[in-house]
Amino acid sequence: MGCFNSKPTRQSPGQVDPVVLASQTAFTVSEVEALFELFKSISSSVVDDGLISKEEFQLAIFKNRKKENIFANRIFDLFDVKRKGVIDFDDFVRSLNVFHPNAPLEDKIDFSFRLYDLDSTGFIERQEVKQMLIALLCESEMKLADEVIETIIDKTFMDADLNKDEKIDIVEWQNFVSKNPSLLKIMTLPYLRDITTSFPSFVFNSNVDEIAA
């Protein structure tokens, strides 16, 4: 094996046009470039290949690469738009765009529905909710009796599953989150408004002469 890796080791915004990405998202060109600084940092944390692996994603979230978590896994899978097993820069920006304070509410509702629809059946099913609750309890080292878990799920389905078919469809979810808007709090990252302040080094790598607002 030679000394040089012939594969490109990093992806620059030049390969994914920041102007195009900015035109299709809530981000400005400068913000897309600042996101690239964040992307570079995450995608090089284990292997510097210009792509975010599941391990790198978990490391960025938990600061611990060995931590397995079904929610972080699910978010990773949804960010992996092209189903390649890794997140490229285009996926990263388009997915984070849903979390932008200015992103359409319906996009946030749709993303959160897919997040909790673990098996991608088009429904959030009772057993999925139970699986997520148990995972959350394990993660927070909280112990609840099975009957308490069932009571929480019963109550939730009483409020959310309007047609009583033991699963929540997208219309029921839209209705449920409109009555419980706090559930969408995780779908907005105020940091995305100030991303150029958080990653000022983008200025040194910028290909844009004038900041496009």
Binding site: A60, Y116, K155, L183
Partner: peptide, 26 residues
């Protein structure tokens, strides 16, 4: 807040794995 008074999704949404804010923390 007592867990039994919360709906399941309120509890689930407290997972650290859903907190993408940590992506921005070094």
């Amino acid at each position: 807040v007592e867990p039994v008074t919360m709906n399941a999704f309120e509890l689930i949404s407290t997972s650290q794995g859903l907190n993408l804010r940590s992506l921005f923390e070094k």
